[in-house]
Design a protein around this nucleic acid. Structure first.
Lengths: 192, 192
DNA sequence: ATTATTTCAGAATGAATGTTCCAGAAAACG
DNA sequence: CGTTTTCTGGAACATTCATTCTGAAATAAT
């Protein structure tokens, strides 16, 4: 019988994901991937297909993890407004602490306009995250923590689009306090 | 005597800028530039230097034009709050109407973390635009159109970072109404 | 041990890349 | 006209790229 696979595909995928995440799609070469994944060229092509397929799997995995984090944060807290606050603060912290710009945002601006598959992944993911926030906002409105006059979908999109703003500000200014300040004001804007 | 230059460097630069703007830096090849600028390879290298120098000139020209637009919009209106509103609505319209994502935002996410010169251009430009908004906010506060409690610099950054959010939302959803809605809410957030 | 399959290192391929270079045509002015 | 410079098309060059292929070593079950 045959020799069995000796590496963990998911584990190697994570290394690829981190590399794409850091460098972007185009700037990452197959040689970079061979070096970073510690895998043979042939093994990569056998297991994941070509560079583009590999990237899609990485992006999908990133998006799934991200969504899961939001879902968990939404569940973990009693007060819906507190949950929103927690999510916003968490987003600001990720911006500051992760050494590299959100893979979703980066990929959106690099590829979403020319790569239909990338666009679909990002659109679905954004929609899911917006949806989580929308439900929280509805709950917050019922609990009278957020003005009922506001459209929940609109607010949810506002929050998510502000996260992209966090990344851009931090990319340009490298100023952690500035991002925290923005996050605080975002929460204030939602409340009233 | 010598033959004089038969093309207008600034006019050709504009074509290069539009191409970089649409495709991004890495995805634009010298061959693309030769085709689009309608110029010989040698002429491009003679006049603008290599690809990277050409890109920097394009980005600088884009950034300068953008800043000028903001300055004009800030001057043209009597009421400072109306000027801010105008600028925000204008940003939303640009997002919707221009066929391509803001060159500054795109370049930021593609290059700002690895290209010091790009980073400097974008940082300076952002600072200038934030500064224009900051002055408007100060005036609006004196005219009692905006709460004096808020830090003008913080609000100015909030506005600019929301513009990036506009681009991201439109990139993902292609929904003009959504962006307009976001712009309206942004203005509301500033006022109170 | 034999056989089947996966691993690996790296060569080979073919296309695309940025850049330089060259020869000739075009233009401006004496 | 003759000289000088800039234009052009395109060849040339050296890299780099994604991808495929080769061949041998490693592994696992018969």
């Amino acid at each position: 019988m045959a020799r069995s696979k000796s590496f963990e595909p998911e584990e190697k995928l994570e290394k690829a994901r981190d590399l794409f995440w850091q460098k972007g799609y185009q700037a990452t070469s197959m040689q970079d991937l061979v070096d970073t994944m510690g895998l043979n060229r042939g093994s990569i092509y056998d297991t994941y297909g070509d560079k583009h397929s590999l990237f899609l799997r990485c992006l999908k995995s990133y998006a799934d993890d991200l969504l899961e984090e939001y879902v968990k944060a939404a569940d973990a807290t009693k007060s819906p407004l507190k949950a929103i606050e927690k999510i916003v603060k968490r987003a600001a912290l990720r911006t500051i602490e992760e050494g590299k710009t959100c893979m979703g945002v980066k990929s959106a601006f690099e590829l979403a306009s020319v790569d239909e598959e990338v666009h679909t992944i990002l659109k679905d993911n954004t929609t899911s995250i917006v949806s989580v926030l929308k439900e929280l906002i509805k709950k917050a409105q019922k609990a009278d923590e957020v003005s009922a006059k506001r459209d929940p979908a609109m607010l949810a999109n506002f929050i998510v689009s502000n996260f992209t703003g966090f990344w851009q500000l931090y990319l340009v200014y490298n100023d952690a306090d500035l991002v925290k300040q923005q996050a605080e004001f975002l929460v204030k804007s939602i409340k009233k």
